[in-house]
């Protein structure tokens, strides 16, 4: 492998990895950093299973090159919970049975967090459109939307 060295911060920790220039950040995170919570469902930006934040911006990691992440801050599902407890979104996904097979769950959680970071009280329609880039084939989205609504409520309460 002829690779380049990439310096990043992943979920708050300094991480350095080497990757070929044509490797996607998705592959780098999974194969080189070991963060297999980031999933590949399509590799073409259509399913959102590989959603991460890159310098605070929600992106599909399959549509970013590993080398592009140099100097960037990356957030993945593995960084959602703190050492004490789960994030309210994670708790409500479990409480609402908002996952069946769970393969899409990491991407949904990252995307839903990006939404709630920007919009504390989204409407059902806003939630549905914000999550339109994340495909789920098991749930019909019903319980996912309810879980996001419940988590938004929890987060608003926490702030008060």
């Amino acid at each position: 492998m002829t690779g380049v060295l990439v310096d990043t911060t992943v979920n708050g920790d300094a991480v350095q990895f080497a990757c070929p220039t044509d490797e996607t950040l998705l592959d780098s995170l999974r194969d080189r950093v070991g963060l297999t919570g980031v999933k590949e469902g399509c590799g073409t930006g259509d399913c959102g299973a590989c959603s991460i934040t890159l310098d605070g911006q929600l992106v599909c990691s399959c549509l970013v090159l590993g080398v592009e992440a140099n100097g960037s801050e990356i957030g993945t599902v593995e960084g959602l919970a703190d050492s004490e407890s789960l994030h309210p979104l994670q708790e409500q996904f479990i409480n609402h049975a908002a996952l069946q097979c769970g393969i899409c769950t990491p991407g949904f959680l990252v995307a839903a967090k990006a939404l709630l970071d920007k919009n504390k009280d989204p409407s059902e329609e806003q939630i549905r459109y914000a999550l339109a880039g994340n495909l789920c084939r098991c749930t019909g989205y019903d319980k996912i939307v309810r879980a996001v609504q419940a988590a938004a409520k929890d987060l608003r309460k926490k702030k008060k």
């Binding site: 593995e78 789960l86 479990i94 769950t105 959680l109």
Partner: peptide, 13 residues
């Protein structure tokens, strides 16, 4: 549930 919301659950790949 916890494994699946934290990314720890291990799938085929």
């Amino acid at each position: 549930g916890v494994d699946k919301v934290t990314g720890r659950a291990k799938y085929g790949a």
